[in-house]
């Protein structure tokens, strides 16, 4: 795992009275997303997370549908990031590994770092590289996890491989029908949406925000995986 320093994350959307920045305490994050091979080890030890055993409450019908069977990857490459996993399954894997899922703030903080500069917004080469990925469809065959270029913290594939679950993916206050929600971010929808946003140029961040707010915890998606985080042991 890579260790990230203390830092600050500027949320994409915030209420008028909210602080502009959220403090992030130093934490550890997996250098790459969890792979099919690693997830296979998990379901072998935890049969209730096998494809045929999982309860519908915790994962939809497409859970691990690209594997050949409960304990058989079939054509899925063990080195590829695991996808078609629900939030519950990702959370259970993380707990089994003695880790946890990163919060959205932690994930975005990590993903905001460039190849050479901890603030990726100051690095045009990094900005171009991620814009390119967000404009490219997911390939039929995913590359191996960890094959991307590392950022300044040594983290790979935060952009350019798969979307990733976060522990509080359901903290975005929007729904298909925004009347159902109360509070700060009700202006998200329609043309006025970006007025409350701090950085209207950060299109990939909007895409991630939209992606997360469209998810439900049991959903499994062909290009959505996860990586784990861990607190720094207190001294």
């Amino acid at each position: 795992m890579a260790t990230l320093p203390d830092g600050k994350y500027r949320p994409l959307f915030r209420g008028e009275k909210d602080a502009k920045e959220i403090a992030i305490a130093s934490f550890q994050l997996d250098e790459r997303p969890v792979t099919n091979g690693e997830f296979l080890g998990f379901v072998r030890e935890n049969p209730k997370w096998q494809r045929s055993q999982v309860k519908r409450l915790f994962a939809d019908e497409r859970y691990l549908a690209h594997w050949a069977g409960d304990g058989d990857l079939g054509k899925a490459d063990p080195a590829q990031p695991v996808t078609q996993v629900s939030w519950f399954a990702a959370k259970a894997f993380a707990a089994w590994s003695g880790k946890r899922l990163p919060s959205t703030a932690e994930w975005e903080f990590a993903a905001g770092a460039g190849f050479t500069n901890p603030d990726g917004t100051k690095e045009p080469e990094f900005q171009q590289a991620i814009a390119k990925w967000y404009g490219t469809p997911t390939p039929d065959v995913l590359p191996a996890a960890g094959s991307g270029k590392p950022n300044v913290h040594g983290l790979r594939d935060l952009h350019g491989l798969v979307w990733e679950w976060t522990s509080d993916f359901n903290s975005a206050i929007v729904t298909g029908d925004a009347r159902g929600d109360t509070g700060l971010e009700r202006n998200l929808f329609c043309g006025a949406g970006s007025l409350g946003a701090k950085d209207t140029g950060n299109f990939p961040a909007f895409m991630r925000f939209g992606m997360r707010s469209s998810l439900k915890a049991g959903y499994t998606v062909h290009n959505l995986g996860f990586r784990c985080a861990k607190d720094i042991p207190s001294k």
Binding site: G15, K17, I173, G180
Partner: peptide, 25 residues
């Protein structure tokens, strides 16, 4: 709490004053 909210399809976050913005369901 986060897990139960996820099952009920309720999104929420806490603001700087400690109030929670949340789906009403």
């Amino acid at each position: 709490v986060r897990e139960l909210a996820a099952l009920l399809g309720i999104n929420y976050s806490q603001d700087a004053r400690g109030q929670f913005a949340h789906s009403n369901v």
